[in-house]
Write a protein that binds this DNA or RNA. Structure first.
Lengths: 342, 342
DNA sequence: GTGAAAGCGCTAACAC
DNA sequence: GTGTTAGCGCTTTCAC
C-alpha cells in the first residue's frame, strides 16, 4: 500500500455535481432522507455509491457543533471489571450513531482532569466517568462546560458524604452497601474472623468501609486489610493472603475487592493446602465469569456491569436526542451470590 | 448541573482580542510556542487561563486535515488478551497527543468493515486492526484511503497463505508457529494424546492448525478439538473439557487457546479430582497474570501484549510525524513458559 | 422539495 | 515574530 499517497477525497459537492442537484440536497439525502423526494434520493445514493463518497464527519461536526462522539474515562481497561461496561457502552452508543473515545486515568485524578480537558476540546457530546469522586475543580469545570455526564460504578447512599453528589446523571450502586452486604453474608455463614484484600482505590476502600462497619456492628473485632496500590493484578493475591495470615493466623474468611483477586486467593489456598471454605472462606466481588468457573465456585457480589454500560449509553442517547432520559440517578444495585467458597 | 445550558464558549478570537494580538498568534502560541516571542506567549497564556479557553479541536482538525485521532478495532475489549494491547496503545498514543477511538467487531467481518467506514469518515489519522484476515474489499478500501494502518496479533509466516499479506504495517507473531511450539512443548514433556480447546475464530484456529501439524509430524494421532463460538468465556471450560474427554478419555494434555480458558480447565480438573499435570497436563496461551497466579502455575505461550500495543502506537506516531517508522513488519515473537501445569 | 448564502472555529499559506 | 487572506467540508438558516 502506498502509505503517503492520500487519495483525492470525494467531497459532497462532487456528489452534488455528479447527481445534478445542489450540495444541500446531498446533505439532506444523507442526514434526513425522508425530506428528499424518492427519485432524488435514489439518484444521490447511486452517485454516492459509485463515487465511494464518505461524508467528512469532522466538517459536519464543526458545522453542526455535534461531534457524535462520547468519551469514557475508566481507570484502566485491562481490569475486566471495567472492560465489560465499556464494551456495552460502545455497542449501545454505536446503535445511536455515536462513537466512543477511550480515556484511561490510571486511577490518577490529574490524568482524569487532563483527559476531560482534551475531550471537551473535541467537543464530545457526552462524557462517561467512573466513580463519583471527582475533584471540586473538575466538577465545576464540567458544570460550566454544559456537557451531559454520566457517572458510573458508584452512587452515594443517602447520608454518605465521603463522595460527591451526582453531577448530572449516574448509574451505579453503593460500594459501601455492597461491602456491608458481603460482611453480612460471611457473618451469616458463621465467620467471625474476617479479613480484606483489595486495591488502594476509592471504590475498593468504600467496600472495605462498609465491610468493616458491618463487622463492627456484629461485634467482631478488627478487620485486618491489606490495600495494594492499583492496579492490582491477580498474581499479587498470594502475597496479600500471606500478609493477612501473618497478621491474623486464625482468619476464617477473606473478602476480596474483585473476583480475579479472589481466584488468586483460591489458587494460593490450594497451594498451601488450605481447605476452602472449611478452613478459610473466600468471597469475591463483581461476578466475573471466573467466579462461576472457579472451584469451589466463588461466593461474590453480583454487579451487572454490562447493564451499567448499556444504561449509561441509553441515558446519554436519550438526552442527546432531547428525549426524556428518565431518572437522573439509577441505582442498579447488587446481589450477593452465595456459592460454595464461603 | 444545568444540563441543557451550554456555556458561551470562548473562541480563539476572543483570546486574541483580550490579549491584544491577532488570532494566528494565539494559534501559534498554542501549537508552536517556540515560534512566538516569550512575552507574547506569556500574555496569551495568561488570557487563555483567565478566560478558560479550550481550543476547538474539531475546527483545528478540519483546517489542518489532521484529526489527532487513531482508531483501533478489536474483536472485544472484554477479552483481557486485547485489553492490555489497547491499554498500552492508548497510553502510547496519548504521549504523542493522539486519542483513541475504540471499535469492537465482535469477531464479525461486516462489523469491522462498517467500523472502518465510519472511522474513515472521521478522517482518523491512523488505524489499528486486529489480525491479518481482512477481506479483499476492506483491504482495497484501506489502500485507497491512504490511511496508515497497523495490523496486530498476527503475522503471516513465510509461505503461510491462509492469511493475507501485511497491508501497511504490522506488529505481531505467527499464531501457527505459536501453536506448533505449544505442541512441541507438550510432546517434549512426554505427552502423546493431545487435545485442544479454543474459540472458533481466526487466530485460535491458526494455533490449532500449527498444533495439529506439529502433532502429526511427531507421528501422533488425531488431535480432538472443540471450537466454541466466540467470544469464549471461562465458564465454558468445564463443558469443553467434558466433551474432549468424552471423545478421548485417555487424553494426557490439553492446549487451550487462552489462559483464562486454561484456568477454567484447571478448576474443572480440581472439581473432578483430575491431578494436574500427572493425569492431565494443561497448557494456556498468552501469559495473562492468572497463568502465574494459578496453582499449579500454568505453562503457557508468552505474548508480550502490552509491547504489541506500544509498538503499534509508536509505529503510527513515527509515521504521522513523518519520521522513520522502522521495519514495516515487526515480529515480536512468543516464548513458551514451561511451568508446573505440564 | 430544493437551493443560495452564510458561517462553524480553526490552520495554512503568504506577506510584512 | 506577527498579521492578512483564504479556505477546510460540511450544516444551517431562509428563501423560493
Amino acid at each position: 500500500m502506498p502509505p503517503s499517497t492520500p487519495t483525492t477525497r470525494v467531497r459532497m459537492s462532487d456528489v452534488a455535481d455528479a447527481a445534478g442537484v445542489s450540495l444541500v440536497t446531498v446533505s439532506r439525502a444523507i442526514n434526513t432522507p425522508d425530506k428528499v423526494a424518492p427519485e432524488t434520493l435514489a439518484a444521490v445514493r447511486s452517485v454516492v455509491a459509485r463515487l465511494g463518497y464518505v461524508p467528512n464527519l469532522t466538517a459536519g461536526s464543526l458545522a453542526s457543533s455535534r461531534s457524535r462522539i462520547v468519551a469514557a474515562i475508566v481507570p484502566t481497561i485491562s481490569n475486566p471489571v471495567f472492560a465489560e461496561t465499556v464494551e456495552a457502552l460502545t455497542l449501545t452508543l454505536a446503535e445511536g450513531g455515536y462513537q466512543l473515545l477511550l480515556g484511561q486515568s490510571a486511577y490518577r485524578d490529574n490524568d482524569e482532569a487532563a483527559l476531560v480537558e482534551t475531550f471537551l476540546g473535541r467537543r464530545v457530546d457526552g462524557l462517561v466517568l467512573t466513580g463519583c469522586g471527582q475533584s471540586r475543580t473538575l466538577r465545576s469545570r464540567l458544570a460550566k462546560a454544559g456537557v451531559p455526564v454520566v457517572q458510573t460504578w458508584d452512587l452515594p447512599e443517602a447520608g454518605e458524604a465521603a463522595i460527591g453528589p451526582v453531577l448530572d446523571m449516574a448509574v451505579g450502586f453503593s460500594n459501601l452497601a455492597a461491602g456491608a452486604a458481603a460482611a453480612r453474608h460471611l457473618i451469616e455463614r458463621g465467620h467471625r474472623r474476617l479479613g480484606f484484600v483489595g486495591a488502594d482505590e476509592a471504590r475498593s476502600r468504600q467496600r472495605l468501609e462498609g465491610f468493616r462497619a458491618e463487622a463492627a456492628q456484629a461485634g467482631l473485632g478488627d478487620v485486618p486489610a491489606d490495600l495494594l496500590r492499583s492496579p492490582v493484578q491477580i498474581d499479587q493475591a498470594a502475597s496479600q493472603l500471606a500478609q493477612l495470615l501473618a497478621r491474623r493466623a486464625d482468619l476464617s474468611a477473606v473478602f476480596c475487592s474483585n473476583d480475579l483477586l479472589a481466584a488468586g486467593v483460591l489458587f494460593e489456598c490450594r497451594r498451601r493446602g488450605i481447605a476452602v471454605p472449611q478452613q478459610l472462606a473466600v468471597m469475591g466481588f463483581g461476578d466475573l465469569p471466573i467466579a462461576r468457573a472457579a472451584w469451589p465456585p466463588l461466593s461474590t457480589v453480583i454487579i451487572r456491569r454490562a447493564e451499567m454500560g448499556q444504561r449509561a449509553g441509553r441515558m446519554l442517547l436519550a438526552r442527546l436526542a432531547d428525549e426524556d432520559p428518565g431518572a437522573r440517578s439509577v441505582n442498579i444495585g447488587f446481589e450477593v451470590a452465595a456459592r460454595a467458597s464461603t
